[in-house]
């Protein structure tokens, strides 16, 4: 009886559907990868979903496994594959996909890589799929309805842009701030210019002067627009102090009043969005 029940249970097991072919992945497709195990799996054959619908990952690049691993008849193990994926799916490639300029700072983007399943590998496929996921501050992929293709150049980029929320105490803002996406309330927006602090950057004026050219580059203007100011923060890690250039709304709060927290980005739109319905900004 136990054996019959065991057989019944095993046959009732839903080990997972085969899904789509993993031999020929395509760039730009979005997927609903929900569990850490799916995220870390060697292959990911879930059917793609429209990027305007809730999803967790998007394929930003498809490349080919190099030798010597590519020469192996049997697919390499998970660690070997994932190590190769780290070399093949780089943040530079991702930034290019996002149309990031050198002044665009990002937050909450995790890269993972997928490979052909064992059958597809045996059939000769060596395709490597590079996916990006938008994560929260714990590293958990978030469901988004945004197409990340050229996202940093478009109007819905705030969800992946790095901003800072500084504390307001005794009438002054703290030097450092908490990292948040610009879609959340913040006091300053990172412009991807981080400078080791030296004597010339000891004063606020010195820091602002040093960051000004980067701010202008970020804003795409020759002078600061009205209502926008340079507001660098100072990040201390161990004994190392780094000035992180940032811009912020220049509206002066009333005396004794905390500066207004803003959401969204100050970055200008550069090119048209390629698709997807954003919900950030």
């Amino acid at each position: 009886m136990a054996a019959v029940m065991l057989t019944a249970v095993l046959s009732a097991c839903d080990q997972g559907k085969p899904g789509v072919d993993t031999a020929n992945p395509e760039t730009g497709l979005c997927h609903a990868v929900v569990t850490p195990e799916e995220f870390d799996a060697s292959s990911e054959p879930s059917p793609p979903v429209p990027c305007a619908e809730p999803h967790t990952t998007q394929t930003f690049q498809v490349t080919t496994m190099p030798e010597p691993l590519a020469k192996q008849e049997a697919r390499p193990n998970q660690q070997q594959l994932k190590a190769a994926g780290k070399r093949l799916c780089t943040s530079e490639d991702l930034r290019a996909y996002l149309s990031a300029s050198s002044r665009d700072g990002t937050i909450g983007l995790a890269i993972t890589s997928y490979f052909p399943d064992r059958d597809a590998w045996a059939a000769g496929s060596r395709a490597v799929r590079c996916d990006v996921a938008v994560t929260d501050h714990h590293g958990t992929p978030q469901e988004i309805g945004l197409d990340l293709k050229d996202a940093l150049a478009g109007p819905h980029s705030a969800a992946v842009r790095l901003c800072y929320r500084q504390e307001y105490k005794d009438g002054i803002l703290s030097d450092d701030g908490t990292d948040v996406p610009c879609s959340e309330p913040h006091t300053a927006e990172d412009i991807s210019a981080w400078i080791a602090q030296d004597a010339s950057l000891a004063t606020s004026a010195g820091r602002e002067a040093r960051c000004l050219p980067y701010a202008l580059e970020f804003l795409g203007t020759e002078k600061l627009p009205a209502g926008v100011g340079v507001q660098p923060i100072i990040r201390t890690v161990g004994t190392a102090r780094t000035v992180r250039c940032a811009v912020a709304s220049a509206r002066q709060p009333a005396p004794g009043e905390a500066p207004e927290l803003v959401t969204g980005t100050l970055a200008p739109q550069r090119v048209a969005v390629t698709g997807g319905a954003g919900k950030n900004g």
């Binding site: 195990e37 799996a41 060697s42 990911e44 054959p45």
Partner: peptide, 18 residues
Amino acid sequence: HQFYGEGCGANGTGEPNY
């Protein structure tokens, strides 16, 4: 939850674990 391929099974490989 509907799993696909190697998302379910022995970690990272999808081999069924009985």
